[in-house]
Amino acid sequence: METTPQILEVKEVTMRFGGIVALDGLNLSLRAGELRCILGPNGCGKTTLFNVLTGALRPTSGTVSFQGAMISGKSPAAIARLGISRKFQVPGIYPELSVIENIALPLAAANRHPGVWSLLRQRPDRARIAELMGFAGLSQKGHVTAAELSHGEKQKLEVMMLLATDADLLLLDEPTAGMSKGETSAIAALIRKLTSELGKTVLVIEHDMNFVRELDCPVTVMARGTVIADGSYDEVRHDPRVIECYLGRAA
């Protein structure tokens, strides 16, 4: 039986800021098409990990490779062009622009070679934009300024923007932050569709335990810059190291 290839390999990555060790010899690998959650208390290094993966930070030591190629040390734009897209905790949308323009922008980068000359000759792909707006239930709001959307709509818009980039690996940083329970379920369903129907590989950072349970996917738990447990949600919940780490918090 052929094993699915590892799309992402993080090997012994350490990230130091002066005296602070944010990531400590972290190892992580993802198979193509996998959906994985990363859990951990505040300050355990989850966001730093995302920063390293997207090129915002260059790891002090260790390597990151994506689809076989080394990406640690590359610029954010170069890494994005290779097919990694990130959703930020605070919605990374363009508040002054309309919904259509918001989606049109990452769409223009979907061909992976968004140079000035090719962008000048391109017009936004109206059909694809309409399709994506449909996915997110925003079809009636094309010309609305993004700042006027509700919080949940903004989050969905940003997920659509990530889809527009046609990236293979999507990094979602606390996608349910600020959402109501109903919105949370909707986002969970959307994220599950990303892997099951669209074949994307998705890595999610989360805090909301109910949401993690709904996603029903493998979980990696981090603490103090390194991985302390790996497995399904139920396995990890009963892991003594994880309990110790979360001592004082309701599981």
Binding site: A77, S85, Y94, E101, P114, V116, L119, P124, M161
Partner: peptide, 25 residues
């Protein structure tokens, strides 16, 4: 009206975010 124009608008609105979509700002 071209995609380049959309890029400029995005740069104006949130330059840093735009890099993460793969554009050479």
């Amino acid at each position: 009206r071209s995609s380049f124009g959309t890029l400029l608008a995005a740069i104006r609105s949130n330059e840093n975010r735009t890099r993460y979509f793969g554009f050479d700002v």
